[in-house]
């Protein structure tokens, strides 16, 4: 199985510099993850702020280089690829940004943002062809071209703008879309339509989607697999049915139990496990499990060495010594956790 995009043993450290060694923050800690060429799926990268999820997204899109490790697209290292290869990479891996209010230039009509990628990548052979492609893309994301084209961004709602962002990505004929919190700034009644359009792209056009989020309920609804990050480390990964329905890592359990659900029979208890918040620690201070200081089940060994990913059951792995009797994951690639189980 060949990987379309591969993040290999990547770390990202912010800050520091020559005189401030102790101020370094590990945003991502030796993470390996690949998106296969076959079987395009929707995968969630979940975690709280500071978990490294956005850093991982930026690495995948080549907007940021890793401090150590590599990112490959179609087998080529993104850092050293040729101009032509980089152009292909830029076109085939498309972002959708969080804030639909910030992502548009208010002086241009929305047509501009849709025409630009077609021109830039030479994807349309005539004006009519460009127009046809744009209309098709808009319809795919549930917008009526007549009511959308010719308008300025301020004349559209946040939900509509976000869908234009999806349509813009779509016009590049991408293989991968990295959507960073695409619905966190959109009203509840409009969220579903945006997520539904992502599902359409995945199902009908075979585009792999990385859905970066802190919202486990939407992740559960639209994703097949999930990677949960905590302070730059993978704490749990697997199919959403395993990880979200029956979480094995105490951190995932805390996240799932904190979700406010509109169901009063399941009022959340008053007890609050893991009081305190994630604080990115300086490099030197972290010896054991990063979650140990907040963990209700922390043991002595948790402070001695970082836990590897154990496989307590098929299609899932958890980095927690509670499962130390289970076998350790055999490869470093996080995506192999659910791929293997499927075989």
């Amino acid at each position: 199985m060949t990987a379309l995009l591969e993040v290999r043993n990547a770390s990202k450290i912010y800050g520091g510099g020559l005189f401030k060694r102790h101020d370094r923050t590990v945003a991502l800690d030796h993470l390996s993850y690949s998106i296969p060429e076959a079987n395009p799926s929707i995968t969630a990268i979940a975690g709280e702020s500071g978990s490294g999820k956005t850093t991982l997204a930026l690495l995948m899109m080549g907007f940021l280089g890793p401090t150590s490790g590599q990112v490959f697209y179609r087998g080529r290292d993104v850092a050293t690829m040729s101009v032509a290869q980089r152009r292909l990479f830029r076109r085939e891996v498309q972002p959708i940004f969080q804030d639909p209010y910030d992502a548009f230039n208010p002086f241009y009509r929305v047509d501009h943002v849709l025409e630009t990628p077609l021109k830039r990548f030479g994807l349309a052979h005539s004006k009519t062809d460009a127009r046809r492609q744009i209309e098709e893309a808009l319809e795919r994301v549930g917008l009526r071209p007549k009511e959308t084209l010719g308008r300025f961004p301020h004349q559209l709602s946040g939900g509509q703008r976000q869908r234009i962002g999806v349509a813009r990505a779509l016009l590049c004929q991408p293989r991968i879309i990295v959507a960073d919190e695409p619905v966190s700034m959109v009203d509840a009644s409009l969220r579903a339509t945006i997520l539904a359009s992502l599902q359409v792209l995945n199902r009908d056009l075979g585009i792999s989607i990385i859905y970066i989020t802190h919202d486990l309920t939407t992740a559960y609804q639209i994703c097949a697999n999930i990677v949960v990050l905590y302070l730059g480390n993978v704490v749990e990964a697997g199919t959403v049915d395993r990880v979200i329905r029956t979480p094995k890592h105490p951190y995932t359990q805390l996240l799932v139990s904190s979700i406010p659900v509109a169901d009063r029979s399941r009022r959340r208890g008053e007890d609050m496990p893991g009081e305190g918040e994630a604080a990115a620690r300086p490099v030197a201070a972290r010896v054991g499990c990063a979650f140990a200081p907040r963990c209700p089940s922390a043991m002595d060994m948790c402070y001695e060495s970082p836990p590897p990913l154990f496989v307590p059951d098929a299609h899932r792995a958890a980095a927690c010594f509670l499962h130390k009797d289970a076998p350790v994951v055999s490869t470093v690639d996080v995506a192999s956790i659910w791929e293997k189980g499927a075989a």
Partner: peptide, 23 residues
């Protein structure tokens, strides 16, 4: 009713349903 229906649930995977139109 539509607002409640548009909430994603953790119990079952159901079709995502938004409210058509705009405020």
């Amino acid at each position: 009713r539509l607002l409640i229906d548009s909430l994603p649930s953790l119990d079952e995977k159901k079709p995502l349903r938004g409210i058509p139109g705009l405020p």
